[in-house]
């Protein structure tokens, strides 16, 4: 039994191999880019806008709203990263309605790549917000003793993101495959429908967790230590 679409290899030369995961990923990327270009080609500000523009506006506004609710004040800065994550995972998971399609998110390499991009995006946005030293200081909050735990936490949550997405999508596919061999009439359809729901929820979870991590990195940089806070309070009291 095949566990991941990595095992379907079309072409191999040395250590470079072209497998089903890469092909599907590029197909989804092409689909997203081409449809985005087609939709945004004729943007209008009239009362009557095209259906697709309406859909896209709803999507962008919704993602912005969600990012803002998590605690990032300027969602426009982050939607490029978080929105892309959400759209890619959601489309990759939703396309399972097509027969013979294997979601690239059911492969450990794709999910690891997505999680590693989150791992690098968090310090990127943190440094952008408060400078290199300011970001590094967030690792020794509240005390220096927490430094190894902060680093371990950073790595383990990347691992958790990877395994969560992979496990959910792979298990969905596997359950359908097992059901096909024992009750091939109606139950696989129900499980595929459940897989659609799981896929959407996982896309949401992945992007919201990335948002939460970025928000945590930025707010940790912003909050001052207790001592500084007390001095500020004292100054305010003195000044009246």
């Amino acid at each position: 039994m095949k566990l991941s679409p990595d095992q379907t290899v079309f072409w191999e030369y040395g250590f470079i191999s072209l497998n089903l995961t890469i092909v599907t990923t590029w197909a989804i990327m092409l689909l997203l880019v081409i449809s985005a270009i087609l939709i945004t080609r004729g943007l209008k500000t009239d009362m009557r806008i095209s259906r697709w523009q309406c859909f896209l506006e709803m999507l962008v506004t919704g993602i912005n709203q969600q990012i803002k609710e998590v605690g990032l004040k300027q969602p426009e800065k982050y939607i490029g990263f978080i929105g892309t994550l959400f759209l890619f995972i959601a489309i990759a998971n939703l396309l399972i309605i097509f027969p013979w399609y294997e979601p690239p998110t059911g492969s450990l390499s794709t999910t690891a790549a997505l999680a590693i991009s989150v791992l690098f995006a968090v310090p990127f946005f943190g440094i952008e917000q408060s400078g290199f030293i300011g970001y590094l200081k967030s690792y020794i909050r509240p005390t220096v003793i927490m430094l190894p735990f902060n680093i371990i936490g950073e790595i383990s949550r990347t691992l958790a993101l990877t395994i969560r997405l992979f496990g959910n999508i792979m298990s969905g596919g596997l359950v359908v495959a097992v059901l096909l061999s024992i009750a091939p009439f109606i139950f696989p359809v129900i499980m595929t429908a459940l897989g659609l729901l799981t896929g959407m929820v996982q896309a949401y979870i992945f992007s919201i967790l990335a948002t939460v991590y970025i928000a945590a990195a930025i707010q940790e940089c912003k909050t001052k230590t207790t001592k500084e806070q007390i001095t500020i309070k004292l100054k305010e009291v003195k000044n009246g």
Partner: peptide
């Protein structure tokens, strides 16, 4: 929203076990 995030966190422990058995 918090419930969904929390549920995913809890569920991921089950998923880890599933991945190990797979």
């Amino acid at each position: 929203r918090t419930l969904f995030v929390g549920l995913a966190m809890i569920e991921s422990t089950a998923i880890y076990c599933f991945v190990v058995s797979m």
